[in-house]
Design a protein around this nucleic acid. Structure first.
Length: 428
DNA sequence: CTTCATGATTGCTT
DNA sequence: AAGCAATCATGAAG
C-alpha cells in the first residue's frame, strides 16, 4: 500500500517515500496494484473537477470523498506534497533567537519596575532611580510624584499587555479551529497549524514589542523630566529664606540645627531636610567667608526677632530664677546646650558689664542673646570699649574658622576682620 | 550679554 | 554620618 501510494506521480511531482502514512481503513496488504491506481485516478479526477461544479454538487462530492476509504492516505500524500513544494513557509520558523532589542526592552522595563513583581518592584525601582539621581533619601514630594506617574505607566502597560495576550489567544484559537475545520477538506497538517500559530504569535509579539518600546520611551521621558526637575535649581520662596535666616541669625553662635530642628524648619519652609542642611552648610560657609557682607542681613533679622527675643529672654531669666529652666523657644534646646552656656555668659558680661547670674540658662536663651546683641549694637546702645563693630565680628568663630565656641575672651577681642573689609566670595 | 546670588553636588576630613 | 570647602549650574538683576 505504501509503495503504491508513494509511487503515484501527481502533477509531475515524484513523491518520495519515507512519510509515515496512516493505514487505510480497509487496507489489504496484498491487493492488486492496477485496481488501486485506477481508484486513485478516479479520486483525483473528482478532486480536480470539483471546482467546476455547482455548490450542491460539490458538497455532495466532497462528502463522498471524505468518506472514501482512500481519503486518509491521499490526504497525507497531499500534505507531504504541499510541504515539499514549499507552500508552507519554511525557515521563517527557525527557533526565534532571543531578539537583543526585545531583551533590552525587557531588561529596562524590569529595571524601571514597570514589569516584574507588582508591589515592591515599582517603588523600589523608583527609590533606586531617585537615589541614583543624586541624593538624599527624603525628597518625598518628588518621589511620590514620580512614583505615581510610574504606576500610571505600569498600569497602562499591563492592561495593554493583557489585552494583547487575550486577543492573541482568541485569534489563535479561532485560526486553529478554522484550520482544523478546513483540514477536513484540504491538506493541512497539524504541523502546519502549529506553524500558523507560531506566525500569529510572532505577529503579536512584534506588537508587544511596540508596546514595550513606547512604554520605555514614556519611562525615559518621565525620568528625564524628574531628573531635570531635580537638577534645575529653584530659589526657595522668600518666606522660606526668611525662616531659615531667622533661625540662622538667632542661633549665630551655634548655627547647627539638630535633626529635629531641621525637620521643623523643613516643614515650615516646605522643603526637604537635606535642603535645610544644604542651606545651612552654604550659609555657614558663606557667612564665615564674608561676614561683612552679611552684616546688614544680620541686623535685619536680629531686629525682626528682637521683640520676641527680649520677651523670651526675660521669661527665661525669670524662669531660671524661680523655676526650672523651661524653654520658651522651639524644641531645639538639646543641640546647642552646654558648649554655649559659657559663651553666652561671657557675651552677656561683655555687653552690659553685668555679671549674668543665670549661667544655667538654656541654649535657647543663648540664641536670643545673639539676636539681642545685634539689636543693641545696631542701636548703638553699647560701645563698651569693644567698639561697636567688633560685636559683629565672628566672635563665635575660632581661629581655625570653626564655629566652636572660644572659651576665652580673645575670640571677642580678636576678630579676624572688621565688617568693612571686602571679601571676594568664591572665585567663580 | 555679564555679573552676582544661591541651591546642589562632590570630595575630603573628622 | 555630618560638616567643610570648592565648585557647578542656574536664576535673577543690571
Amino acid at each position: 500500500m505504501l509503495q503504491t501510494l508513494a509511487g503515484v506521480n501527481l502533477a509531475g511531482h515524484s513523491v518520495q517515500g519515507g512519510m509515515a502514512l496512516p493505514p487505510p481503513p480497509h487496507g489489504h496488504e496484498g491487493a492488486d496494484g492496477d485496481g488501486r491506481k485506477q481508484d486513485i485516478g478516479d479520486i483525483l479526477h473528482q478532486i480536480m473537477t470539483i471546482t467546476d461544479q455547482s455548490l450542491d454538487e460539490a458538497q455532495a462530492k466532497k462528502h463522498a470523498l471524505n468518506c472514501h476509504r482512500m481519503k486518509p492516505a491521499l490526504f497525507s500524500v497531499l500534505c507531504e506534497i504541499k510541504e515539499k513544494t514549499g507552500l508552507s513557509i519554511r525557515g521563517a520558523q527557525e527557533e526565534d533567537p532571543p531578539d537583543p532589542q526585545l531583551m533590552r526592552l525587557d531588561n529596562m522595563l524590569l529595571a524601571e519596575g514597570v514589569s516584574g513583581p507588582e508591589k515592591g518592584g515599582g517603588s523600589a525601582a523608583a527609590a533606586a532611580a531617585a537615589a541614583a539621581s543624586g541624593g538624599s533619601s527624603d525628597n518625598s514630594i518628588e518621589h511620590s510624584d514620580y512614583r505615581a506617574k510610574l504606576t500610571q505607566i505600569r498600569q497602562i502597560y499591563h492592561t495593554e499587555l493583557e489585552k494583547y495576550e487575550q486577543a492573541c489567544n482568541e485569534f489563535t484559537t479561532h485560526v486553529m479551529n478554522l484550520l482544523r475545520e478546513q483540514s477536513r477538506t484540504r491538506p493541512i497538517s497539524p504541523k502546519e497549524i502549529e506553524r500558523m500559530v507560531g506566525i500569529i504569535h510572532r505577529k503579536f509579539s512584534s506588537i508587544q514589542m511596540q508596546l514595550k518600546q513606547s512604554t520605555c520611551e514614556a519611562v525615559m521621558i518621565l525620568r528625564s523630566r524628574f531628573l531635570d526637575a531635580r537638577r534645575k535649581r529653584r530659589n526657595f520662596s522668600k518666606q522660606a529664606t526668611e525662616i531659615l535666616n531667622e533661625y540662622f541669625y538667632s542661633h549665630l553662635s551655634n548655627p547647627y540645627p539638630s535633626e529635629e530642628a531641621k525637620e521643623e524648619l523643613a516643614k515650615k519652609c516646605s522643603i526637604t531636610v537635606s535642603q535645610v542642611s544644604n542651606w545651612f552648610g552654604n550659609k555657614r560657609i558663606r557667612y564665615k567667608k564674608n561676614i561683612g557682607k552679611f552684616q546688614e542681613e544680620a541686623n535685619l533679622y536680629a531686629a525682626k526677632t528682637a521683640v520676641t527675643a527680649a520677651h523670651a529672654v526675660a521669661a527665661a531669666v525669670q524662669n531660671n530664677q524661680t523655676n526650672s529652666p523651661t524653654t520658651p523657644n522651639s524644641g531645639s534646646s538639646g543641640s546647642f546646650n552646654l558648649p554655649n552656656s559659657g559663651d553666652m555668659f561671657m557675651n552677656m558680661q561683655s555687653l552690659n558689664g553685668d555679671s549674668y547670674q543665670g549661667s544655667q540658662v538654656g541654649a535657647n536663651v543663648q540664641s536670643q542673646v545673639d539676636t539681642l546683641r545685634h539689636v543693641i549694637n545696631q542701636t548703638g546702645g553699647y560701645s563698651d570699649g569693644l567698639g561697636g563693630n567688633s560685636l559683629y565680628s565672628p566672635h563665635n568663630l575660632n581661629a581655625n574658622g570653626g564655629w566652636q565656641d572660644a572659651t576665652t575672651p580673645s575670640s571677642v577681642t580678636s576678630p579676624t576682620e572688621g565688617p568693612g573689609s571686602v571679601h571676594s566670595d568664591t572665585s567663580n
